[in-house]
Amino acid sequence: MNRSLALLLGLAAIVVIAVLPVWIGPFYTRVAQLFFFSAALAIAWNILGGFSGYWSFGHTVFIGMGAFAAAHFVTQIGPIGSGPFSMVLPILFAGLLCGLFALVIAYPILRLRGIYFAIAMLGVGQVIGELVNNIRWFQGGVGVFLAAPAPGGMPPEDFFYYIFAALLVACLIISVVVRNSRFGYALLAVREDEDTAMMLGVATERYKILAFVLSATLVGILGAVYGYSVGYFTTYTVFRLDFSLNMIVFCLIGGIGTLFGPVIGTAVMLFLTQVLLSRFLDIHLLITGALVVAIILLVPGGILGALKQKFAGRAAVRKSVEA
């Protein structure tokens, strides 16, 4: 019953997503595209930060690295394949590079915990960003082009809408699979009590590195596609502190460490900032900050955490009444 219901809901969602751009017009297609992109980023962040409790404050490094990797792959090697398929290899290369980079820095940097890990990642993001900006070969200062090969007749915003929708679904599936596997439980054990988990024989080091690499690869792929979707970018288009922070804030508002919390948090925040309050650009920061503070003070578990608590409380009451 439950499974077929989920399947039905999934199918309905796919149909709605497929026909939506026709209904809502170019502007809201762009907003929806931003939503898919941001939610996918939040999910990728959540695999490391939510499941294993290692909060990275510098995940934008992988967006930037992915975008620049794809651009330089195209200029150095040239587009391989034709039409939209010429994007495949550069994007895969970007994901691979980000994964490799994560693998290299994982061992030393994952020895740090809590706030120290968070700040060290922030540092990694800043250092790589500055290097890309200042070493001439990368052309971060002047910017690079990455033309989007949308199929003929299709508006680019529709094209990237579908690509980001597909990526969001892929990230969601990966996240669900990870969460329900031995790997996922190991990450949760690391979050709850790393030393005890290690003592009980969980290979914490290996699982942590794996989560870090997986998260980095996904963000790298998303970064490369983002690079394609903007077409031209400099260092500060893609190495952006607010990307890093948004991933955290969206997860926090939806519910950190939950499966669908990142998606819900992204939806709520983007609806508030892009749709409801889009005319008050100069107080965006204030609203975001106030929401973050309110969430922490009122519902520390995020929206999903609050709902869960409410239903659990109701169930408990019912049980006590029955007894």
Partner: peptide, 15 residues
């Protein structure tokens, strides 16, 4: 959580 709260307040303050 204090980390996140102080971060939120910093956003408000900067704005």
């Amino acid at each position: 959580a204090s980390l996140v709260v102080t971060f939120g307040v910093a956003m408000i303050g900067r704005n």
